[in-house]
């Protein structure tokens, strides 16, 4: 599989790997995918009182594009408002990383992950 330099860079130097306190009130967690399908992403966002994402962490089980897609996503969502973050499209991720067609589903998973994290956060807040 010939990957773009951007994928390889994110794979070799993944940004924002880690874990936030899932029980905290200002943290939203999205876990998407399934081990059987070969990829699971866990994306967590920490949101301040202005509704701005001030930190994001991820861990991903999956191929190189799945890891790169989630790493890139954490960079993109930081500093964004919840609505802006939830509006990120998989096509933007796929384009930025120049994912081959067979790997598009990795970017779809990343889009699902941020939507799930935002939803989780809003549910916690009773929104």
């Amino acid at each position: 599989m010939a990957y773009s330099e951007k994928v390889i860079d994110h794979y070799e130097n993944p940004r924002n790997v880690g874990k936030l306190d899932a029980d905290s009130d200002n943290v939203g967690t999205g876990m998407v995918g399934a081990p059987a399908c070969g990829d699971v992403m866990r994306l967590q966002i920490q949101v301040n009182d202005e509704g701005v994402i001030e930190d994001a962490k991820f861990k991903t089980y999956g191929c190189g594009s799945a890891i790169a897609s989630s790493s890139l996503l954490t960079e993109w969502v930081k500093g964004k408002k919840l609505d802006e973050a939830a509006a990120i499209k998989n096509t933007e991720i796929a384009q930025e990383l120049a994912l081959p067609p067979v790997k598009i589903h990795c970017s779809v998973l990343a889009e699902d992950a941020i939507k799930a994290a935002v939803k989780n956060f809003r549910e916690k807040r009773g929104e």
Binding site: V17, K19, M31, V32, G33, C37, R42, K59, Y61, D112
Partner: peptide, 23 residues
């Protein structure tokens, strides 16, 4: 280090008990 599954395994969570969203 990057794997959420490894985290869960170390936390003693049985992965088979989780309802995954197959895609």
């Amino acid at each position: 280090e990057l794997s959420p599954l490894w985290d869960m395994y170390q936390d003693g969570i049985d992965l088979d008990t989780i309802e995954w969203s197959a895609h």
